[in-house]
Design a protein around this nucleic acid. Structure first.
Lengths: 147, 147
DNA sequence: GAGATATGGTCTCATAAATAGACCGACTAT
DNA sequence: ATAGTCGGTCTATTTATGAGACCATATCTC
């Protein structure tokens, strides 16, 4: 994996983002309106472990089922199918079947899916930039736990 | 990238972000270097379901354990403890114990934690902007499944 | 013709993770 | 006395994830 890392940019929070964060933080916990809360809803999907990996894998070009499985590597067919279905349902990914000799199915990002990659990518850049700091912090934490 | 809807902001992918995405997508699946891959590493944490909620809850001001539990609402103590420990270990959150009559423990964002909220917030803004589209897509998908 | 390979899945079963909720010891307020 | 607050831990149950067998069809190899 390539390292784009160069120093630690600690990005500022922009005004619209701050407004969003504040409005979320102001909202005091209520489990019942789970479905109402767009943030919870989308966060749950993001938290699906494979979702982001698949979106990223599809970014350069559409891919077929087994191509995806090879690329993501350690995903089971079951999880790949499930995650793709969810993404299709959410309108992030399109599914097209070609009636070739052994049937082939092509998955591609929709405009919506592609648009999600902007904020997701920003998060990944953050992850890459600050991974070293995090790793060091963990080491320090574990060291003093033992003592 | 084409903009379909004038209403929904479908953000462009910036060059550094695209570079990141491409370098990830180029990387073909290997489970062994899990720990080596900063993206997988951080993604796993982000995918923890409660992690983001807690970071967001701490953004306006530091909070105490039971304050957090009330705010997030439907989180169990066990998960709250666990998530806070992880965040502390990662250096995103600080934990300070005050020896008051009933002991009080205050959790606060570190600079690193705060910096994470910029990309996270962007994701939440995206979620909020596109939730309606997603909801509609799901409805359509479910409708034709039944037929 | 037998065997291996590839396609996109589904199905079952085992394991890992999340959840609810009881419990704890020290203290306070009623 | 009784109940409640504080920050947790512990156990038992539900849920999610993972490994891998299986399927029908077709091609390529021996």
């Amino acid at each position: 994996m390539t390292r784009l890392h160069s120093g630690n940019p600690l990005p500022e929070i922009s005004d619209p983002v701050r407004a969003m964060l504040d409005s979320m933080a102001a909202w005091t916990g209520a489990p019942e309106d789970e479905a109402q809360c767009p943030v919870r809803d989308v966060l749950d999907r993001v938290g699906q472990k494979w979702t982001l990996l698949i979106l990223v894998a599809l970014e350069p070009s559409p891919k077929r089922f087994s191509q995806l499985q090879r690329q993501v590597g350690d995903i089971s067919k079951r999880m790949l199918t499930q995650t793709l279905r969810q993404l299709e349902r959410d309108g992030m990914v399109s599914r097209q079947v070609f009636p070739t000799k052994p049937p082939s199915v092509e998955y591609a990002l929709t405009d919506l899916g592609r648009s999600a990659l902007a904020p997701i990518g920003a998060l990944l850049v953050w992850a890459d930039s600050n991974h070293e700091t995090i790793r060091a912090s963990r080491e320090a934490f574990d060291a003093e736990e033992v003592s």
